[in-house]
Nucleic acid binder design. Structure first.
Length: 671
RNA sequence: GCCGGGUUAGCUCAGCUGGCAGAGCAACGCACUUGUAAUGCGUAGGUCGUGGGUUCGAUUCCCACAUCCGGCUCCA
């Protein structure tokens, strides 16, 4: 018998008898590797462990604790879910069941229009556990398209997928299910050799269900078939699966942590903002404590913009219809706008969904010289967008929001330089708020929903790409995700627990300058068309606020905290001294409160301020009055400091505020 | 907008199959004057999201609407 030479990822090679399977190779290398193996990559292609090696090849064993391995486990668990559902809900049709970040889902259509409820998950879970214990083998078979249709004659979604792929219309979604030269299916066979479940699947799969197990079903949801709003609504079950129960538990703990940081919950607990039903969905009011944070955010932003050459403008919230006809909003963005307000049966007025047309009119109010460019017009502009009822979400998706919006009018020649310095500005501003881990997303022309020629779009897209490339950050493409008037770069920021949020957007626009026919006089005494750059750095103040709440888990750095210091007199006789401290620090701009004995026992007052996440609690008693000292109980430290000279505390505090230190921002100190 | 699940005091939640509503915390009052995460006692607070319907009787069952939550779609 001849041998095959196998090359491993580390470059080493070994010889095996022809026909040896990937699994046998893994076992031969070590019993631990054999146990951890869930699939293989043969010549860089995913493969099952029982794949025989018939020629010299590269081979990588995929282990259960790798990203690839977890994907295999999740996909396998999705199959088990589908088997359980088809058993418990006779007549159920199964559609697609991919692995996703941290988990998997599977979409079903139940007989007679039945739907899942959360209470079904328990029974489904028990059934899944049975299947896993039954140690069913996953068996692959490759079939022609027609044979595949025959296997799934009862499963209309599978047939639809096969039809679509066999017709050559494979898109990325389908690629997850089938290959292009036929289809592969996986059968689950129990110990008696009985076929329990068959699914259309590209694979690879674990050899048997007993390799699965650390999973949890999380929730049920409706989802459109193929994501098509007009298509049938399927019943989706989400779950998560991991290499072992320890990893599963850790993941569930992370979910709890995310829940604990939910800005909607913290907004109530910390008395920051609310969404009164009486006002309407997606319309927030900021309470005094939230108002402090927002004011400090806005003031700092204004300062930075002033330093960076922006000029401040103001514009109204409503405008006549014609303005949005000219801008193209009524043609391209009407779905996102509130219905018109009719005045005297004549002119319609609209709430503005964007600030750009107003800033253009300011540019247009008189003739402009090239010497004025780049002209940077900034406004905290409040806009209103009609968001569909199901999509409003806390402060991150609202119907009324304030953008830190600016429009930069610049020459074509200067555009690249302006974009580069703008990106710098964005990133440093976000860093000042404690976000420092970014990647960029480049959104291109939305097909069928855009104005302007392909050439103009290409030019604008290229300019953005160059600016992004110069920043040395990861750049992700978002094809077709641009606004109707131009492509955009979005800055995505990762927060303290690794979630990403869309923050700033920068958009290049050749269109609106044309539509409004704006121009400037160049050094050559000719008229030139300026380029517009739209940009919002917070995105919206509301969303940014919400993201900061979650990033800091409500424990804002001192410069942003609504109450920076609370002074607690031990007894009534320390009240005067407490107020002296407060008055003195207040005069230096510190947000400080005294909570005296009427607020309860000392322990209770400390607890109250801790729950409010106040950065510094000062406890003062006889010794402090005597020596001009304070006891400092800092947020996040478990040991209070005693006998700190008040002057020392004050200078440390003022420095921390002045430098906008985010030193107390780490996740563990958030309690 | 679509699918599913909710809506009981400021907050967190009890309230079995219909029979005129409860707790803890918070608020307020009194007492307590306290050295680093909950002092005690008392008081007040709800037309059970809104409007219809069924019923002798609805917080409870049905319908519509509002609103929230989890997703889908869409987005700053």
């Amino acid at each position: 018998m001849s041998d095959v030479t196998v090359t491993f990822p580390d470059g080493s090679t070994r010889s095996y008898a022809t026909g040896t399977t990937a699994y046998e190779v893994a076992k031969a290398i070590g019993s631990r590797l054999g146990k951890a193996a869930v699939a293989a990559k043969v010549a860089d292609t995913w493969a099952d462990l029982d794949t025989p090696l018939l020629a010299d090849t590269e081979l990588a064993i995929i282990t259960r604790d790798s990203d690839d391995g977890r994907e295999v486990l999740r996909h396998g668990t999705a199959h088990v879910l589908a088997q359980a559902v088809t058993k418990l809900f006779p007549g159920a049709k199964y559609a697609i069941g991919p692995a996703i970040a941290d988990g998997f889902y599977y979409d079903f259509e139940l007989a007679d229009g039945r739907t899942f409820s959360e209470s079904d998950l328990e029974a489904i879970t028990s059934e899944m556990v049975k299947i896993i214990k039954a140690d069913q083998r996953f068996e692959r078979e490759d079939l022609g398209f027609d044979a595949g249709r025959e296997v799934f004659v009862e499963q209309r979604f599978k047939v639809e997928i096969i039809d679509k792929v066999s017709g050559g219309a494979a898109d990325s979604d389908d690629a997850a299910e089938v290959s292009t030269d036929g289809v592969s299916i996986y059968r689950n066979r129990d110990a008696d050799g009985r076929v329990c479940f068959t699914d259309l699947c590209r694979g690879p799969h674990v050899p048997s269900t007993s390799k699965l197990g650390a999973f949890k079903l999380l929730r049920v949801a409706g989802a459109y078939w193929r994501g098509d709003e007009k298509g049938p609504v399927l019943q989706r079950i989400y779950g998560t699966a991991w290499e072992d129960t320890k990893a599963l538990e850790a993941h569930l703990l992370r979910l709890e942590e995310a829940e604990r940081r939910d800005h909607r919950k913290l907004g109530v607990d910390l008395d920051l903002f609310s969404f009164p039903d009486e006002i309407g969905s997606g319309l927030a009011v900021f309470h005094p404590k939230g108002g402090v944070i927002r004011r400090v955010m806005e003031e700092y932003s204004r300062t930075r913009h002033a330093e960076s050459g922006y000029e401040f403008v103001y514009s109204p919230h409503i405008t006549k219809q014609d303005l949005f006809e000219t801008s193209g909003h009524l043609q391209w963005f009407a779905d996102g706008m509130f219905p018109p307000i009719e005045i005297d049966g004549g002119t319609d007025y609209y709430l503005k969904p964007m600030n750009c047309p107003f800033h253009i009119l300011i540019f247009k109010s008189r003739s402009r010289s090239y010497r004025e460019l780049p002209l940077r017009l900034f406004e905290f502009g409040t806009v209103y967008r009609y968001e569909k009822s199901g999509v409003v979400h806390g402060l991150t998706r609202v119907r009324g929001m304030t953008q830190d919006d600016a429009h930069i009018f610049t020459s074509r020649e200067n555009m690249a330089a302006e974009l580069a310095s703008l990106l710098d500005f964005v990133l440093t501003l976000l860093c000042d708020f404690g976000l420092s881990d970014f990647y960029l997303e480049l959104s291109t022309k939305p097909p069928g929903k855009a104005v302007g020629t392909d050439e103009e779009w290409d030019q604008a897209t290229e300019a953005l790409r160059e600016a992004a490339a110069s920043k040395n950050l990861d750049l992700v493409m978002d094809e077709g995700g641009g606004a109707f008037y131009g492509p955009k770069i979005s800055v995505q920021a990762r927060d303290a627990i690794g979630r990403t949020w869309q923050m700033s957007t920068i958009q290049v626009d050749f269109q609106l300058p044309q539509r409004f026919d704006i121009h400037y006089t160049g050094a050559d005494n000719e008229r030139h068309r300026p380029i517009m750059i739209h940009r919002a750095l917070f995105g919206s103040v509301e969303r940014f606020f919400g993201v900061l709440v979650e990033h800091y888990a409500g424990a804002f750095p001192t410069w942003l905290a609504p109450v920076q210091v609370v002074v607690l007199p031990v007894a009534d006789r320390h009240d005067d001294y407490s107020h002296e401290i407060a008055t003195s620090l207040k005069s230096q701009g510190v947000r400080i409160e005294v909570h005296d004995g009427h607020a309860g026992a000392l322990g209770a007052r400390i607890r109250r301020s801790k729950l409010d996440k106040v950065p510094y609690i000062l406890v003062v008693g006889d010794a402090d009055v005597e020596n001009n000292t304070v006891g400092v109980n800092a947020r996040g430290s478990d040991q209070p400091r005693r006998d700190v000279a008040i002057s020392d505390f004050a200078s440390e505090l003022l420095t921390e505020i002045r430098t906008r230190s985010t030193g107390t921002a780490d996740a563990s100190s958030a309690n």
